[in-house]
Amino acid sequence: MEYLAYAAFFLTLAMTFSIICLGLNVQWGQTGLFNVGVAAFVGVGAYTSVLLTTPATPDRIGGFGLPIAVGWIGAAGVSAVVSFLVGALTLRLRSDYLAITTFGIAIALQLCFQNIEVLTGGVFGVGFIPRAFGSVQANALLFNYANLALAAALVVVLYLVLEHLARSPWGRVLRAVREDEAAAQSLGKNPAALRLQAFALGGAIMGLAGAVQAHFVGFISPPNYLPMLTFQVWAMLIVGGSGNNMGAILGAVLVWAIWALSGSLISEVFPADQQARAASLQIVVIGVMLCLLLLWRPQGLLPERQTISKHLGTRHDT
């Protein structure tokens, strides 16, 4: 029983990571934009949704007590706006300025989460976030599986929408811009606008994931959104296969499993006072893995598929 409940808990979190990964795949996999501030966009979504849905409290602004669905939509919207602004600032410049600026906004937003206490609860975070299926919370098994079903359904819907988008004219132009900007431009496409759209869409999905995670766990605080999270999500996408939506989901589940297993192994093997130290080895392993993959198998487990318009029939050459 306990294992079943834990499995559902684990998989629900893996689903929320899959959503972040799908968002990153729109930015990096489809469009080639390197976002080093994933954690910030997830965090903005989480805090937005929490502000909208928690009941009013005297020591905090916000707390509108709105339904969770409204929180989700708000989260995606606000994250999209933040990504749009960052994109508008940097996408016309050299490609790695986006990386540096997203790295910067992650640090700036982390400071905001920590210091604007009237909005975010400061370092103590916000608890008692309304949860989906909160009425069956007493039954852990039912509660966890209901949440898993919801998160999984969301992943499936997002997957279908994103696959459809990737095959749509919009998706094809996006890849054209990624592969050869000058050629796309000479065909009358506007690379800057397309990149900006993709970056904002990816940001919106990450914000949504942050909201889903916050409402599932029921508590958020600034340390949830450290650069560590960005790093994990990148490892997931590169392992799974950037450019492939199925790969993004597979990578998220796989890397999260490796992370959770090695974490419990460390708590078994090492004495309590050495565990923080041993946990840093986990990060070393993931970092080395990321570098080795970039060297030996940059396409990941599931490489990007050639997609062309469905109106042209199936391709025979590969």
Binding site: S95, W234, S280, I283, V284, C291, P298
Partner: peptide, 21 residues
């Protein structure tokens, strides 16, 4: 260049955590 930036990002996490270890 952006792949090299990404590799440097991975290496940075690994190097920093190695110091902590």
């Amino acid at each position: 260049a952006i792949i090299i930036v990404m590799a440097s990002f991975g290496a940075s996490m690994a190097l920093r955590s190695l110091l902590e270890f």
